[in-house]
Amino acid sequence: MRKIDRFAAKPDYRKTPKTDYYCINCQRDIDPSKPHRMVHAIAGGDWYLHPEDEDQYVPDGGDCGFLPFGNDCAKRLGIEWTHEGQKP
């Protein structure tokens, strides 16, 4: 099962989000009606699960679910580590 450390996307938490829907990596607000990405955060949010390994993952107490991820941050992490965003 492949997973990547959340710090691989070089998080930046300096911005304060203005809405309740924002990128978990940079905290920039995301317009849910526009294309964006999601990551599956596991192990209390310390790791992101590769989409191709979803079927191998057994949820546990550290599963944070699918969280919004901005397009710029997804490019830094690697688009292949993200899912297409769903409207909340």
Score class of each variant (00 low, 15 high):
49 L>R: 03
44 G>A: 07
37 R>E: 04
48 Y>A: 11
28 R>I: 06
50 H>E: 10
75 K>F: 12
87 K>V: 13
3 K>T: 13
75 K>D: 14
22 Y>R: 06
57 Y>M: 01
86 Q>W: 07
77 L>A: 07
56 Q>C: 04
39 V>T: 12
8 A>L: 09
74 A>M: 06
23 C>T: 09
72 D>T: 15
51 P>A: 07
21 Y>S: 01
59 P>H: 02
62 G>M: 05
56 Q>W: 05
1 M>H: 09
27 Q>D: 08
40 H>M: 08
76 R>W: 06
16 T>S: 03
73 C>R: 10
82 T>H: 00
7 F>C: 10
1 M>F: 13
32 P>H: 03
85 G>N: 00
53 D>A: 04
70 G>P: 12
43 A>H: 15
85 G>W: 02
65 G>W: 05
62 G>W: 02
85 G>K: 03
51 P>C: 12
78 G>N: 03
75 K>A: 13
17 P>Y: 01
5 D>R: 10
4 I>W: 02
13 Y>K: 14
28 R>V: 07
74 A>Q: 04
12 D>T: 10
27 Q>A: 11
37 R>S: 08
78 G>H: 06
30 I>M: 03
16 T>A: 03
55 D>I: 08
24 I>V: 15
25 N>C: 15
44 G>V: 08
2 R>H: 14
81 W>P: 03
75 K>R: 14
85 G>S: 02
15 K>G: 00
81 W>R: 02
38 M>W: 05
32 P>W: 01
63 D>M: 06
20 D>V: 07
41 A>Y: 01
24 I>K: 15
76 R>M: 09
25 N>W: 10
64 C>S: 11
33 S>I: 08
34 K>F: 11
72 D>N: 14
50 H>R: 08
72 D>M: 14
1 M>Q: 11
27 Q>C: 14
41 A>K: 07
42 I>L: 00
52 E>D: 15
84 E>D: 08
32 P>C: 02
